[in-house]
């Protein structure tokens, strides 16, 4: 098998092992019901992580997604108060996400600022803007939200896919097409693999960078929409720290933080692993939330070290 699938296989193996562990420890754990719940609960993180995958594949990082989730939520809730139909505000906010991401990408490339710093400013800007829009949690009361919550696609075995999970899976498919079947996707891998060479090979760096962060912004805004619909409210602190969970999901999904190596599909499993851990700990009941944090960190550690040695065995620099 081609080496490039190894990290993804490792991710899937860990996911299955965790899931089986759950089945071994708890009755009724091995079911599509639990699986469907994990998918629905973590849909917004996985969506944000899909966007982050593109950014990380290009060798960059996007810290602004967590704040984007909060900002999109409060704006949606306030537009709801102003009588907007959620679909209209969703459309506007997705466009906003794209434009905001594109602007970040443009500044990163034009001003040669490290993505880390630029998106950090983006994090502050969006979080601060959320506070300016509203300091409290604002409910979204439009009947559309309740309708969305009623969407259930039954799965064999008694489980179901909620609307958030469906949106997540569709956006995952779109992302896979974008990453592996478009020139843009190849350019992302090229820039992450070797930026200078990519430039000499004719990859339009600025256009691609702008598009990468626009994709990140789009998925960040979509994650915010899903989160707002899921909680039927907008809260300015929503999504705090989500940028870290998203990055963790991408890493657990087998994408190298150095860029250039990884697969979008892995991010789904990375996000699911994070979801499984918290589900397992909540199922247990005797452990508190400190353990969710610590065990995610521990798994992240194991994965990072594993990647380190797995990738060390690749010969990516082919020196004679």
């Amino acid at each position: 098998m081609n080496e490039k699938y190894w990290p993804l296989m490792a991710t899937i193996a860990v996911f299955i092992a965790l899931f089986l562990t759950g089945g071994f420890l708890f009755k009724n754990f091995l079911s599509t019901l639990v699986l469907g719940h994990i998918l629905a609960d973590n849909a917004f993180i996985i969506i944000a992580a899909i966007g982050a995958t593109f950014v990380i594949l290009s060798g960059g990082i996007d810290l602004s997604v967590g704040s984007m989730i909060g900002f999109v939520g409060v704006v949606m809730a306030n537009l709801d108060l102003a009588g907007w139909h959620p679909l209209a505000s969703i459309a506007i906010l997705l466009i906003f996400g794209i434009l905001f991401g594109a602007l970040q990408g443009f500044i990163i490339d034009f001003c040669d600022i490290q993505p880390f710093i630029m998106t950090l400013a983006g994090l502050f800007l969006l979080r601060g803007s959320s506070f300016m829009v509203s300091l409290d949690s604002v409910p979204i009361r439009h009947p559309f939200v309740a309708e969305v919550a009623r969407v259930h696609v039954p799965l064999p075995g008694g489980g179901f896919l909620a609307a958030s999970a469906i949106v997540m899976l569709i956006s995952l498919l779109a992302a896979i097409l974008l990453a592996h079947y478009t020139r843009f996707g190849s350019n992302v891998y090229a820039i992450g693999g070797d930026r200078k060479s990519a430039e000499l090979m004719g990859v339009p760096i600025r256009k691609t960078t702008v598009m990468i962060y626009a994709v990140g912004g789009f998925y960040g805004a979509l994650a915010g929409v899903i989160y707002a619909l899921y909680t039927s409210s907008g809260y300015p602190l929503a999504g705090t720290g989500s940028e870290l969970s998203a990055i963790a999901a991408v890493v657990l999904g087998g994408t190298l933080l150095t860029g250039g190596v990884g697969m979008v599909a892995g991010t789904l499993f990375g996000g699911m692993i994070l979801g499984l851990i918290s589900t397992l700990i909540i199922f247990d009941g005797s452990l508190n939330s400190a353990w969710i944090i610590i065990s995610s960190g521990l798994l992240l550690f194991i994965f990072i070290v594993m990647h380190r040695f797995l990738v060390g065995s690749f010969n990516l620099r082919g020196r004679a």
Partner: peptide
């Protein structure tokens, strides 16, 4: 020692450190 990129290596403690504090 393990030659992990700094941003990734320190992310581990960043993610789990507050949990350790709670513990």
């Amino acid at each position: 020692v393990l030659n992990i990129q700094p941003i990734i290596a320190t992310l581990i403690l960043m993610v789990s450190g507050r949990g350790i504090g709670l513990l």
